[in-house]
Nucleic acid binder design. Structure first.
Lengths: 202, 202
DNA sequence: GTCTATAATAAGATAGAC
DNA sequence: GTCTATCTTATTATAGAC
């Protein structure tokens, strides 16, 4: 007779992951103690280590969920009949976390940690590579349809599409007066002018 | 009779700061131990704390030097008779650290730490604000001379000039196969197209 | 001014009761 | 499955000899 309710188990886990996300965003991975996470999640140390083998696993769990979300949104964008609309929709999705003021800090922390943790780096690079492949495919289709300048290399431009979204996270992380979502129209303008998107010209 | 040679003292300090920079870039601030710094600089714990009051002061010292370099290069750029050339020269200077593979990691670490350390944040924000003010002035002059689109808001565009350089650091931090300096010409192209720089059109 | 030795503290993870 | 209590280890910073 099993007493484990998998739904309850998953909910408890998610609760821990969310509480930990806030801690990591505010204090960083290394300065967040397991005691901080326990306090935020309203559980004891013993319980935390019942759900996760160590602190790092809690951090990883945040971005595993994120990777699944991204893959889903990427598939939607690539399936869009209009590749340019698909691209803009994807960009919107990628910058959405910026609505939460903690998120810029969490992304900066992710990149910082990924620089020293090969497993985390693998997670980040895989996600990045998938996004770039999808974006490059969208750009190729847009070029075929004459919607953007066909002189632009899709693979290289995909780097810059993500680079521009990175810039929003970075600027938001540096300057608390910078409103990243208010800059989204400008991001679209830069993208359109860089890629020679047809909307601008005619 | 003073036995302290200020030149020797400054050299020893700089040696520690440089050794520490490498450690911080590779392991991050929190995972770098004072013992790591001592080993890298070839000194003992007692000596380290003779030159710096604590670990954080070593980290700060790196970026104080950096801030002075930036201010100097900014003055040069603003003094340039050709504002567009001044801007491009400044951008070149800002991305120069990317020639050293450690530097992307160090910048990411700086931004991550600045999110939790008000004094460090103040240093970063002040430097950022000065750069943006200088860049906005260059853009205004370029617009007056008809070198760029005068519909672009200089203060806002200054954010994006720095955002594009941020993007190079961020991409280099995420993907070790990404060669940031090879992307510098593309950065200039994006900038020129975004700002409607005249070179492109005629 | 540089060293060795160590004090003081904090943190991750575990044991074992309930 | 959750808790309290605690073990173990690591780290910053200082004391004091040379």
């Amino acid at each position: 007779m099993r007493t484990v309710d998998p739904v309850r188990y998953a909910a408890r886990r998610r609760n821990i992951v969310e509480a930990a996300g806030g801690c990591f965003a505010r204090k960083g991975f290394d300065r967040t103690t397991t005691a901080d996470i326990c306090a935020a999640a309203g559980i004891s140390s013993g319980s935390l280590f019942h759900y996760f083998p160590n602190k790092r696993a809690v951090f990883l769990a945040i971005f595993e969920q994120d990777g699944r979300d991204n893959a889903e949104q990427l598939a939607l964008a690539v399936a869009d009949a209009d590749p340019w609309a698909g691209l803009l929709g994807l960009v919107d999705h990628l910058v959405r976390p910026l609505a939460d003021p903690d998120s810029a800090g969490l992304v900066v922390e992710l990149i910082a940690q990924a620089g020293r943790d090969p497993e985390l780096a693998e997670l980040v690079v895989r996600n990045d590579r998938e996004l770039r492949a999808g974006i490059a495919a969208l750009l190729s289709r847009a070029a075929e349809q004459g919607r953007i300048d066909d002189q632009v290399d899709p693979a290289q431009a995909a780097h810059w599409v993500l680079g521009l979204t990175d810039a929003l996270f970075s600027r938001a992380g540096i300057d608390r007066d910078f409103d990243p979502l208010a800059e989204l129209p400008t991001l679209r303008t830069i993208l359109a002018r860089y890629l020679g998107a047809v909307e601008r010209i005619g």
